[in-house]
Amino acid sequence: MSIGIIGAGAIGAALAERLVAAGENVLISNSRGPDSLSALVSAAGPGLTAVTVKEAAQQDVVVLAVPWKRLKDAIAATGLTGWEGRIVIDTTNPLGPPDFKVANLGGRTSSEVVADLVPGAKLVKAFNTLPPHVLGANPRSGSGRRVIFLSGDDAGANDRITRLIERAGWAAVDLGPLATGGRLQQFPGGPLPTLSLLKEN
């Protein structure tokens, strides 16, 4: 299984390096093109390949790791009008530079809004609650494994991403559907972001 990542900022890079370290084949992209990612690819080693946004979006599992205000542009750059057959992992939070003003979500969770932007995809919210330096660190410690929360409306997709999280060394906690679990994960507003929890081995 290849994993496409759209966005090579702090979250995208940390996630790519951790997944590659776990033996996953990862294709990473950004708006500036593959040549701009040579240093990241060199540091991560075999398993990480720099590609275009369109190429990253062709994978069975696609990670959205771009700032909220660039999300629509990043999705448009994929050239896809339908996302059937793909699992999309949403790592975004509904705020960001330059003003860090929280987006108006109309009472919905941010991932429900994102799901509308990728019609046909099975969307899973994950990897949004930890800062990049924690996300990119070794998920295992002497006392346990770092917890990664996830939520989504498709049980099969949740299970597949749970297995990916566990293979990479984290401990997955499935919070259920987006309307409830996504609200617990959401930053700002939810109680789970910034919590760095360990599950005992």
Rank of each mutant, 00 (worst) to 15 (best):
K101I: 15
K125Y: 04
A13I: 04
T81I: 14
V124K: 01
L150E: 00
A155G: 09
V88K: 01
A16H: 01
L71N: 04
G23F: 04
L198Q: 12
Q186S: 04
L197S: 03
P97I: 15
G169F: 06
R163V: 10
F187W: 13
A43R: 15
D35P: 05
T52V: 09
I165A: 01
E166I: 09
A22N: 02
K69I: 15
P131A: 08
V113D: 03
L19M: 10
R32F: 07
L95M: 12
G156K: 14
A65R: 03
A65Y: 02
D116V: 11
E166G: 05
E112Y: 09
D174S: 06
G152E: 05
G47L: 08
A172R: 00
L15W: 03
M1C: 11
N93P: 01
L37K: 01
L130Y: 03
S2N: 14
P34E: 03
E112C: 08
A179G: 09
L37V: 04
L197W: 08
W68C: 03
T92F: 06
T91H: 06
R108Q: 13
S42P: 03
T49E: 14
N93M: 05
P191R: 11
D90H: 03
A43M: 12
G106F: 12
L135F: 03
P139Q: 07
F127K: 07
V124G: 02
D73G: 15
L40R: 00
S141V: 13
G181S: 09
Q186M: 09
T194L: 15
P191Y: 08
N158F: 10
V51I: 10
P132G: 05
A126S: 12
T162A: 11
L71R: 06
G79Y: 00
V124D: 02
T78W: 02
D116C: 11
W83T: 00
D153C: 08
D99I: 11
V114H: 02
P67K: 07
T52W: 11
A50W: 00
W68F: 08
W68P: 01
A8P: 02
L64P: 01
P191K: 10
V118C: 07
A168E: 01
L27N: 06
N25E: 15
G182I: 06
R163Q: 14
A172G: 04
A56E: 05
L40F: 08
A115R: 11
L80P: 00
A10V: 09
G85L: 09
E55P: 01
S143A: 15
G96W: 07
R167F: 10
S141F: 12
L117T: 05
E17P: 00
